[in-house]
Design a protein around this nucleic acid. Structure first.
Length: 421
DNA sequence: TCTCCACAGGAAATTGGGGGTT
DNA sequence: AACCCCCAATTTCCTGTGGAGA
């Protein structure tokens, strides 16, 4: 067995590459200078004794929206502390909330904690209007300039209440500014025109990073996280002294793959982190292109597996009935036999089967999410044929267990696959 | 080459659940 | 509670397609 502490490592500080933002937050964002400047301009009135402008920040996930706001508000807070200015910043993550009321309760709690220290309870049982008044009273209690950051406000859906009331409440003796952050571009379009004009006094848009920007971001992270040539003396295994910790093509590849995909920096970092760990776990001293590719395959495989595991019930049955046929050796099967098998499975589980038409949509859904393959046309009349886009083993292993829903059918399927081999 | 027909997939009709109103 | 409205999911209906079989 391996002993801890004996391993050489290419890492200097692994946390810097950890995609989890609680572990590491960058302190400067050269790729977002423009956006930071826009935020700066909107917040600057605070330093002149005026109300900072409301901002609506939007862009896809992993584009540095939250970090930018945090950096800028922290910077303002520092200035305020030095200048003896009365400034309070409240950050409310709305992720997982489903309505304005929910968001208001959290806002109330956060404000109370700013004033009275941690340990406040979430309020409950109040009417919406009453709760809003409580929030406003708390704001007045604090006074001065207050910036409320509503992070991921798209989570609260089309419930505009908080966004409608808060910006126009203007409590006595308070200079109140609202910053809304959203991942959902559609959300901005769907906003009530009034809300949009009051909340979006300034709008800051974060476009997806391109491959160059991702490469810069990754190299900064890599620099902090990996040992470089100057740190070789810290590596105990001197025979590897000649090798570089990072091969020249690994990082650009990770950046290119990331840009191709979504331009999500978090995803790119996750990919590169995994590649570096592969290298490190194998006791290798260089992160190579091969590691990046392996990491990509690994993450894709993980995504497929969790995709199968979290499949909705009907899609799960559709996958199982397809797999049932495929596991008998065919490479692809026509819709009708799959549907027949599906109906049998529904019978076993005592469920009302979907109509043929609907079931075909389910099959197409599965092929859209790259779990099944689809061949159109061919054969008698016009007939689609479906196959598995993943290994039979992968599909079978990730089906429900005995004790879970549809476990019975899955169990039968597993038996058949065993016999087939 | 012609006709037939089983299926694909678009569109209309139906259902059913949640939320609001009286 | 009774009612209506809205929305999404689903079923029902329908047309177009293109190889099979004559």
């Amino acid at each position: 067995m391996k002993a801890f502490g004996d391993d050489d490592t290419i890492f200097r500080d692994m946390d810097v590459l950890n995609p989890n933002e609680q572990t590491y937050q960058p302190t400067d964002l050269p790729e977002r200078t423009e956006e930071l400047d826009q935020i700066h301009s909107a917040l600057r009135p605070a330093t002149m004794g005026s109300t900072p402008l409301n901002i609506l920040v939007y862009g896809q996930t992993g584009q540095g929206k939250t970090v930018s706001i945090t950096l800028k508000t922290n910077q303002l807070q520092e200035y305020a502390d030095d200048a003896d200015m009365d400034l309070t910043v409240v950050h409310v993550p709305c992720k997982g909330m489903d309505n304005s009321y929910h968001a208001l309760t959290h806002l109330y709690k956060e404000i109370r904690e700013k004033r009275l220290g941690p340990g406040e309870e979430l309020p409950s049982g109040y009417q919406r209007k009453a709760l809003l008044n409580m929030v406003l009273e708390e704001l007045q209690e604090i006074g001065g300039t207050i910036i409320v950051v509503l992070d991921e406000i798209d989570a609260i859906g089309d419930d505009d209440y908080i966004l409608y009331e808060l910006p126009r409440s203007n409590p006595n003796g308070v200079r109140l500014s609202i910053i809304g952050i959203t991942n959902d571009l559609q959300f901005r379009e769907n906003l009530d025109a009034d809300v949009r004009s009051s909340l979006g006094e300034d709008e800051v848009k974060f476009d997806p990073y391109d491959a160059n920007q991702l490469r810069n971001i990754l190299s900064r992270r890599a620099e902090g996280a990996l040992r470089d040539t100057h740190f070789r003396d810290k590596i105990r295994d001197y025979e590897h002294l000649e090798s570089e910790v990072l091969s020249s093509d690994a990082l650009p590849l990770a950046a290119a793959l990331g840009a191709q995909d979504t331009g999500d920096a978090r995803e790119a970092i996750r990919l590169f982190f995994r590649a570096a760990r592969f290298a490190d776990d194998n006791g290798e001293t260089t992160v190579t292109e091969a590691h990046v590719r392996a990491a990509r395959d690994f993450l894709e495989q993980k995504a497929v597996e969790s995709g199968i595991q979290t499949l909705p019930q009907q899609k799960m049955l559709a996958l199982m009935s397809t797999t049932w046929h495929i596991s008998k050796g065919e490479s692809s099967v026509a819709t009708t036999p799959i549907y027949t098998q599906y109906k049998k499975m529904c019978d076993v589980e005592d469920i009302e089967p979907l109509s043929n038409r609907r079931f075909r949509d389910r099959l197409n859904d599965l092929s859209d999410s790259n779990i099944l393959t689809k061949k159109r046309g061919r054969g008698r009349g016009k007939e689609n044929k479906y196959g598995l886009a993943v290994d039979v083993a992968t599909a079978v292993e990730n089906l429900p267990q005995k004790n879970e829903r549809y476990g019975e059918v899955a169990e039968i399927l597993r038996k058949q696959v065993e016999m087939g081999n």
